[in-house]
Computed example of a mutant assay.
Amino acid sequence: MHIHIAMMGRVTEPVTKAFQALGYDKLYLLSGTKFQESIDKVTESLSNFKVEVIPEYISGFDFQEIVNTIYRIYERENEKGVTFSINITGGTNLMAAAACSCAFFIGATIYYVMDDDKPVKEQVLSIPTPKTPNMAALKEETREILRYILKKVESGGYATTAELMEEFNKTKQTLNHQINILREEGLVENGEIKRPDGKVDRRYKSIVLTQQGRLVASWI
């Protein structure tokens, strides 16, 4: 089952072109109520191919509403064998930004549809996305560690293994296991600690967030 989530304004071609190229099974249309005519046009066009079209009415200028809507779709549809894709071509720039953020977390492929004279399949471009972390592998106590590291970084500091052991009352073995989970998901890495004279203290390593880790820690 391929579920396609499309941002759409008045223009319908990016949605129908994506179907020609990808052949999705179910379509969620995120659009405004003032574009009902366009929604009806897409629904009628895809009904010939037995594609279920479900409109989701949102404000194109409410980032959180867009994010919440996409997550709600994901929670409703996510099961074994289901793949998700997101079409960011239509709607507002904010809709595209919110959709890209969501794609990262739900493991969806992002598509952008060009408007040119090339064959349709060449107009539908797949946008590379970072490796999606396995959120199911992050138990609450592991998420707490991630949030704590973010808090330290935002305050201008850094976290060490010894500090985390004390803060979360963990043995070194248990903490290292949780840090390794975060490292395997690409969320943390080892960092350097500098002495007051500016030289690197090679006796210790800090635990720092990757760019991906900072994003995840801000959301969970």
Rank of each mutant, 00 (worst) to 15 (best):
N48W: 08
E77P: 00
K205R: 13
V124E: 08
K139M: 09
V15S: 07
P128F: 04
E75P: 00
E44C: 07
K41P: 02
E56S: 10
A159C: 05
A97Q: 01
P14A: 09
E56P: 03
V153E: 14
G157F: 05
T16V: 14
F168W: 11
E140V: 13
E189A: 10
K194E: 11
M1R: 09
L146T: 08
G23L: 15
G157E: 07
V208E: 13
I66H: 01
V188M: 08
I110G: 00
E37L: 12
T171K: 05
Y57S: 04
H177G: 12
T132H: 13
A21V: 10
E79A: 11
T89K: 00
K152G: 02
F49N: 09
P128I: 09
P133R: 14
G191C: 10
I193F: 03
K172I: 08
F104T: 12
I88N: 00
G32N: 15
Y204M: 15
G157D: 08
E65R: 00
N180T: 12
I220T: 14
S101N: 11
N190K: 14
K205I: 06
V11Y: 09
I3P: 00
L164C: 10
D115K: 03
G157Y: 02
Q20I: 11
M7R: 00
R203Y: 06
N78G: 01
D115Q: 06
I70F: 01
M1L: 09
V113E: 01
A162T: 12
I3M: 02
G91V: 03
H177M: 13
S31Q: 03
D197C: 01
D115S: 10
Y24A: 04
P119D: 05
K118R: 15
D40F: 03
S45I: 14
T69I: 01
Q212H: 13
F19H: 15
G23C: 11
I207F: 05
V208M: 07
S218T: 11
I73N: 01
G81Q: 05
A96T: 02
Q123R: 15
I66K: 00
I149D: 04
I3E: 02
I145C: 05
W219P: 07
C102S: 04
I106H: 04
K205H: 09
D201R: 03
I73L: 03
I145T: 05
Y24K: 03
E141G: 04
K151E: 12
T16E: 10
K17L: 12
G186Y: 13
I86V: 08
A162H: 07
L187I: 10
F84S: 00
L46M: 09
A103L: 04
L30H: 01
F104M: 15
V82E: 02
L146K: 10
Q20L: 13
D116Y: 02
A6F: 02
R195N: 11
N48T: 12
L27E: 09
Y111P: 05
I110M: 02
N78Q: 05
K170S: 08
S45E: 15
N180Y: 12
Y112V: 10
K170P: 07
I179R: 00
R143W: 01
E37H: 11
S101D: 09
A21S: 14
A18V: 15
E65K: 02
L125F: 14
S218M: 11
Q173V: 13
E65G: 09
A18W: 07
T161E: 15
E79G: 06
S85P: 09
L94I: 05
L175E: 13
G32D: 15
